[in-house]
Design a protein around this nucleic acid. Structure first.
Length: 463
RNA sequence: UCCCCGAUAGCUCAAUUGGUAGAGCGAGCGGCUGUUAACCGCUAGGUUAUAGGUUCGAGUCCUAUUCGGGGAGCCA
């Protein structure tokens, strides 16, 4: 007798073998004549395993009234071809063992569709549903695929720090990390004395691993970070989280074009790989969440991304005749509605915008020969919007320092970052990609809180 | 943080100009069936988010708060 996961049992070509399967009951269909069908799920696949139980089976009479939705059981039985439609194989039980019961009057998950808002309030139970099971299996496949992509190209996985004392690049408001007593912190000259804090200075949770990534790119070569990232912005949208996972590759000797090539290849490769690894879950999303999702993803895999300079994009937006709430003019950042028009309406495919005005971008982006633009890029995809932001980094010491001053930053605060330009500086590039935004793209889900196991957003950090 | 909308049974929703709360699903019980979002019958289940106000009377109107949804800003 072998213990099989539900996914293995469903795929088994061997029948008439004795098996041991364990999992949670999704539903029971019962005859009072002593005949019942259980749908068993253990998370290994979307599909359930049907268990057929004759009234005489060991343990059935004893446990029957507790074989309810959500209860956990061990079934020993024989795997057989199913005579009825709906499944290829099923298990004919010979004994039933009950692990844990789930009071049917209290168990919140029912054999019916629940709203995502309701399921978010029971985040500890929602992975037991079809949709969230599929989401988190796909999320796992996606993470694996991301590592595969970089590892197979010789990139080094770097663990950038989560606690940091550098203000990063002003990527967003930061969460402070402190062991000082918030009620009565030590004061000196009317200010909090951080020299008495755990790290001897003010510390925060990271908003980006990019600067550390650049250290490793200019030593170990092509590398990437992949870890949690924190932004204390008070943003309440379907696309933002206070804690999210970010992937940040950084490559020496890459110019912006190489960076764009990598970003495009990256997106297309991981989408294709997840489609290939999770066909059942992806079919489910196409059926229940967004009936066009498979076609959309096909479109992304099969077609080159369109590359458009910021200046060209502004021209298109100004002459397209479309009415926008915010007017478009060169030198201001594009609004969501503009990006959406370009990627969804005008071109209907992913777009890479590049060479943005220097005034609206960060200090570390390489200044172009024209002096008014920098080598920045954003990848926009239909339905999600901005999914990647990246740039070629400024490698010239003098230009970097003057850009820092221009942006109101003190070069001495970033002395180690500036050192990278002082010793063996090379052209290099990188980008950042939000894992949860890729999840939105892949699954067709529309709220980012539903593609991360335990969402952290303003006023919400339960579970 | 700003704008708009919402909160009624375990869940999803209904309730006429302000007139005293209803359905489907789920649950319990019974029936029936190689069933499969099973099916049929019966039963239970509500301080209408919270606090105040207007009114003879408030689920319905007003104010505040909390939470949720959509959009915007910020970004990934």
């Amino acid at each position: 007798m072998q213990r099989l996961k539900v996914a293995q049992a469903l795929k088994s070509t061997a029948v008439e073998i004795e098996v041991d399967v364990r999992g949670w009951i999704r539903t029971k269909r019962e005859s009072k004549q002593g005949f019942a069908f259980l749908e068993l799920n253990d998370g290994s696949s979307l599909a359930n395993l049907q268990v057929v139980i004759e009234g005489t089976v060991t343990g059935f009479a004893e446990h029957n009234k507790h074989l309810t939705t959500g209860s956990a059981v061990r079934i020993i039985g024989v795997l057989k071809e199913s005579p009825a439609a709906g499944q290829k194989v099923e298990v004919h039980a010979t004994s039933i063992e009950l692990y844990g019961t789930a009071d049917a009057e209290k168990y919140p998950l029912q054999k019916k569709r629940h709203s995502f808002e309701f399921l978010r309030e029971i985040a500890h139970l929602r992975p037991r549903t079809n949709t969230f099971g599929a989401i988190f299996r796909v999320r796992n496949a996606l993470c694996n695929s991301i590592h595969n992509f970089f590892q197979s190209r010789g990139f080094v996985y770097v663990n950038s720090p989560i606690i940091t004392t550098s203000d990063a690049e002003g990527a967003g408001a930061m969460f402070q990390v402190t062991t000082l007593d918030a009620a009565k912190p030590p004061m000196v000259d009317g200010h909090i004395d951080y020299s008495q804090d755990f790290f001897g200075k003010r510390a925060s949770l990271t908003v980006s691993g990019q600067l550390e990534g650049e250290i490793f790119a200019t030593s170990l070569g092509d590398c990437y970070t992949f870890g949690p990232t924190f932004r204390a912005e008070n943003s309440n949208t379907t696309r933002h989280l206070a804690e999210f996972w970010m992937i940040e590759p950084e490559m020496p000797f890459y110019e912006l074009t190489d960076n764009m090539d990598l970003a495009e290849s990256f997106i297309r490769t991981i989408v294709a790989e997840v489609l290939a690894t999770c066909p059942e879950d992806m079919a489910f999303f196409n059926e229940r969440i967004d009936t066009t999702i498979l076609a959309k993803l096909r479109n992304i895999i099969d077609n080159d991304f369109l590359r458009l300079s910021y200046t060209e994009a502004v021209e298109i937006l100004m002459t397209c005749g479309e009415k926008f709430e915010y007017s478009v003019k060169w030198g201001t950042d594009l609004q969501s509605e503009h990006e959406r028009y370009l990627t969804e309406k005008k071109f209907g495919k992913p777009i890479i915008l590049f060479d943005y005005p220097r005034e609206i971008k960060s200090f570390y982006m390489r200044v172009n020969e024209d002096g008014r633009t920098v080598r920045a890029m954003d990848v926009l995809v239909p339905g999600v919007g901005e999914i990647i932001g990246g740039s070629q980094r400024e490698e010239r010491l003098d230009v970097l320092i003057s850009r820092m001053q221009e942006c109101g930053l003190k070069p001495e605060d970033y002395w180690w970052y500036v050192d990278l330009r002082r010793y063996g500086s090379v052209p290099h590039s990188g980008f950042g990609l939000g894992l949860e935004r890729v999840m939105l793209l892949l699954t067709g889900m529309t709220n980012i809180r539903d593609v991360i196991p335990f969402p952290r957003t303003p006023k919400n950090a339960d579970f």
